[in-house]
Computed example of a mutant assay.
Amino acid sequence: MAAYSDWESLSADPDPEADLGYVGTEWDVIRTTQKEQSHLLFLPQDEQLLKQEAFVIADESAVVDIATHR
């Protein structure tokens, strides 16, 4: 577990890969409606991740595009 001082040393806007160790992947987004409720289904393009049951189902109102949302 990281120490508090480790977190303090990070930039206020850290690079996800270099600073935090995250490796991004491409995902497909499918919009669906069931019982008059809109949902988004996020599926990884990497088939191996999909085989590991890596997917997300979210209520459309709960999803925000962080690239455009400020």
Rank of each mutant, 00 (worst) to 15 (best):
M1Y: 12
M1K: 06
M1A: 14
A2G: 05
A2P: 10
A3C: 15
Y4W: 15
S5G: 12
S5D: 15
S5A: 15
D6M: 08
D6E: 12
D6R: 09
W7F: 14
E8L: 14
S9R: 14
S9N: 13
S9F: 01
L10D: 07
L10Y: 14
A12T: 11
D13F: 13
D15A: 04
P16Q: 10
P16V: 03
E17Q: 13
A18Y: 09
G21D: 06
Y22C: 04
Y22L: 02
V23L: 11
V23G: 09
E26S: 14
W27V: 07
D28Q: 12
D28T: 01
V29D: 05
I30D: 03
I30F: 11
I30K: 12
I30R: 11
R31C: 05
Q34H: 15
Q34C: 10
K35H: 11
K35N: 12
S38W: 05
S38I: 10
S38H: 09
H39A: 00
L41C: 04
L43H: 04
L43P: 00
P44R: 00
Q45K: 13
Q48Y: 07
L49G: 10
L50W: 06
L50H: 06
Q52N: 05
Q52P: 03
E53F: 07
E53A: 14
E53T: 14
A54N: 09
F55H: 05
V56S: 08
D59Y: 08
D59N: 13
E60R: 06
E60N: 07
E60S: 10
S61Q: 10
V64I: 02
V64L: 04
D65A: 04
A67F: 08
T68L: 04
R70M: 03
